[in-house]
């Protein structure tokens, strides 16, 4: 059920400016909330639970979070991430540094709804509702002193909770210097790519940058300021591991392979030219819209054949 040690986990984080109690503040202020959350410094156990169809995915991690980065410990490994870098001491130690001059786009589609003061884990906190039009997209319980999000619930398009991220054993710390990179791990530098294979905008998500991917593939990273995903376009010759226990996701456009985890969802499909893999922390209704705007699974793909064999 859980995929501890296999998944790398950097969820979207949030924080809040102290004393923001005026209801219906604008998206500009939500950005401040999120930016300040990245600055929060704390240690905690983070439990992430996601509901995908009939599958519940849960992970439980020890997290050390500081300005812009975090260290996550799992059973047998740890991962440090931040500022476009990631160093992981898992089964295969690895380091990645992404070179980009671009930043996450401004938040346009979300606004802060009601803000109330609450007590959470004996701490003073703000309960912030994040609205996407009339839909409540998230509820955040934000620690007043540290700005950390103690509890985040994300809702699907039908207003049901599909992900809960909660901190326990929460220990806020004062600022201390960011740990240096681990020198024992070799680091791979990932360059920017000029490709324009995929559109600049997908279902309200803006493309941030495109990078060279493994084995001649390319990675397009999209964000709406709150959630984000990457689409990897990969040669058809390449085998993509990690979908052995996948589920099938069927939309109007065709059949996709899907591996849901507590923190994110991974999707794989192929059109006549390429394999595609999408990885991101996006809500299910956004996922459907995004897939609808991406190249559809090819008619000649084995998936289609399989599907037609079953259903005519």
């Amino acid at each position: 059920m859980t995929r501890l040690g296999r998944s790398v986990l950097v969820g979207t984080t949030f924080a809040v400016a102290f004393g923001v109690l005026t209801p219906a503040v604008t998206a500009g202020e939500l950005e401040d909330i999120i930016t300040q959350a990245r600055e929060a410094t704390y240690n905690a156990t983070r439990v992430t639970k996601s509901v995908w169809g009939n599958q519940i995915e849960v992970t439980d991690q020890l997290v050390e979070h500081w300005s812009g980065g975090e260290l996550v410990r799992t059973n047998s490994s740890w991962t440090v991430s931040g500022n476009g870098r990631l160093v992981s001491m898992g089964e295969v130690p690895s380091g990645l540094v992404f070179l980009t001059a671009k930043t996450t786009p401004e938040i346009q589609r979300y606004e802060v709804g009601s803000v109330t003061t609450v007590k959470h884990m004996h701490r003073s906190a703000l309960r912030v509702e994040v609205m996407e039009g009339d839909l409540k997209r998230a509820t955040l319980i934000v620690d007043e002193r540290s700005g950390a999000v103690l509890l985040a619930e994300t809702f699907n398009g039908q207003g049901r909770v599909f992900r809960t991220v909660s901190l326990s054993d929460f220990k806020p710390y004062r600022m201390y210097p960011e740990p240096e990179e681990m020198s024992s791990v070799p680091v791979q530098v990932i360059m920017h790519s000029d490709s324009d294979l995929l559109p600049n905008e997908l279902a309200g998500y803006q493309i941030v940058d495109v990078f060279q991917g493994p084995g001649g593939s390319e990675q397009s990273f999209y964000s709406d300021g709150l959630f984000g995903f990457s689409v990897f376009a990969i040669s058809k010759r390449t085998v993509i591991d990690g979908f052995a226990d996948s589920m099938a996701l069927v939309t109007d456009d065709g059949l996709y392979e899907m591996v849901p985890t507590a923190q994110d969802v991974r999707i794989r499909w192929a059109d006549k030219d390429r394999n595609f893999v999408l990885v991101g922390d996006i809500p299910p209704d956004h996922l459907e819209e995004i897939l609808a705007d991406l190249p559809a699974p090819g008619r000649d793909s084995m998936l289609k054949i399989w599907w037609h064999k079953l259903f005519g």
Partner: peptide, 20 residues
């Protein structure tokens, strides 16, 4: 014995980290 580190094929970096 407890982590996956020891079981995987070991490039020098893996060994170094285990030793660490």
């Amino acid at each position: 014995d407890f982590s996956a580190l020891g079981a995987s094929p070991s490039p020098d970096e893996v060994l170094a980290s285990v030793r660490l």
